[in-house]
């Protein structure tokens, strides 16, 4: 079959909402685009464990501790689903991990902010996971089959993450003045970085238009961000907290909220590696990789020994 024919089959599949599967022909640029996005997504799940891991030993009760542990364990699983999906496009796990450690691959800018107080754990669940869910619900319908299936599984597991975060903040907001102030402070620091999670405005995003045409993404960054804002404002109201945006106002005519300006300079600065925790996050991943080396070696040695023993028994 000629490349033109293959391209036609591919285009027809995209048009008719037929998923692209690993062994199907696909344009190189599509493969590269989906691989980049899945790898970034996988790295984000894994690096995302770090700000929260910092609070496991300091969780205020056993109930909070088991919930946080379960959430972080989920993130590890989500990283695995996504690495597996990425590997279907012809890369290997080791390469993906090294790309992150060598600074060649990106992860979500949000995880370069620190979780300074217990209220931050609430804000991360409510806002960061909330924003991630808005994005991931859209990605359930992505055109690449393995990515779509990973997203469906992840969405199913992730709704508890947001609820546990909101519950933390609700408890703080119903507590003492100091506790409520702590919740407000967490919202103040996490609101804008959460909005940045959706990426640059579509007009400034290098990949957006092509990703939409290939149906890798089903909604633009700006629409997703707006959706997140519209659903989050009333949740903040219920907590009795103030979203740190003086321009935030309901627009009756548009049926959505008007809101202020994102500081894109901050966003690009964090992406470039100058956020509060970029170096710390990568150092933690490198340490985990190095300190885990003996475990991987031991598992390999054990498997080799058992295989040898089986061969001997068979002989």
């Amino acid at each position: 079959m000629s490349e033109t024919d293959l391209q036609t089959i591919f285009d027809r599949k995209i048009e008719n909402e037929v998923k692209i599967e690993p062994k199907d022909w696909m344009p190189d640029a599509y493969r590269k685009n989906v691989l980049r996005q899945m790898a970034q997504h996988a790295h984000s799940e894994v690096v995302g464990m770090l700000p929260e891991g910092n609070w496991i030993t300091r969780a205020p009760s056993m109930r909070r501790k088991v919930a946080l542990l379960a959430k972080i364990q989920d993130e590890a699983g989500h990283g695995l689903y996504l690495y597996s999906a990425a590997e279907t496009l012809g890369t290997d796990r080791e390469r993906l991990v090294l790309d992150l450690l060598e600074g060649k691959a990106k992860y979500s800018s949000i995880f370069n902010y620190p979780a300074l107080t217990w209220a931050d754990i609430g804000a991360v669940g409510w806002l960061v996971d909330g924003a991630a869910i808005v994005n991931q619900i859209m990605l359930q319908k992505t055109s690449y089959g393995p990515y779509s299936r990973a997203m469906i599984r992840i969405c199913k597991e992730e709704s508890f993450h947001q609820r546990q975060g909101y519950e933390i903040l609700l408890t703080l907001c119903r507590g003492t003045e100091e506790q409520k102030a702590m919740a407000q402070d967490a919202l103040n620091r996490f609101w804008w970085p959460s909005l940045m999670m959706f990426g640059p405005s579509d007009k400034d995003s290098p990949h957006s238009a092509q990703s939409m045409a290939w149906k890798v993404k089903r909604m633009g960054n700006d629409d997703l961000r707006q959706k997140f804002i519209d659903q989050t404002v009333k949740q903040a109201d219920f907590l009795g907290l103030t979203i740190p945006d003086p321009d935030l106002k309901w627009n009756e005519e548009k049926g959505q909220y008007d809101w202020g300006q994102i500081d894109w300079e901050e966003f690009y600065n964090v992406i470039k590696g100058n956020g509060p925790c970029n170096k710390e996050r990568l150092a933690a991943r490198q340490a985990a990789y190095d300190n885990g080396a003996w475990v991987r070696e031991a598992a390999t040695a054990y498997a080799n020994k058992r295989a040898q023993r089986r061969d001997k028994d068979a002989a």
């Binding site: 597996s84 796990r93 299936r149 990973a150 599984r153 598992a299 390999t300 054990y302 498997a303 058992r306």
Partner: peptide
């Protein structure tokens, strides 16, 4: 359900 890497079946 999905896939994963492991050195042997048990793991």
């Amino acid at each position: 359900s999905g896939s994963l890497h492991a050195p042997d079946a048990e793991m």
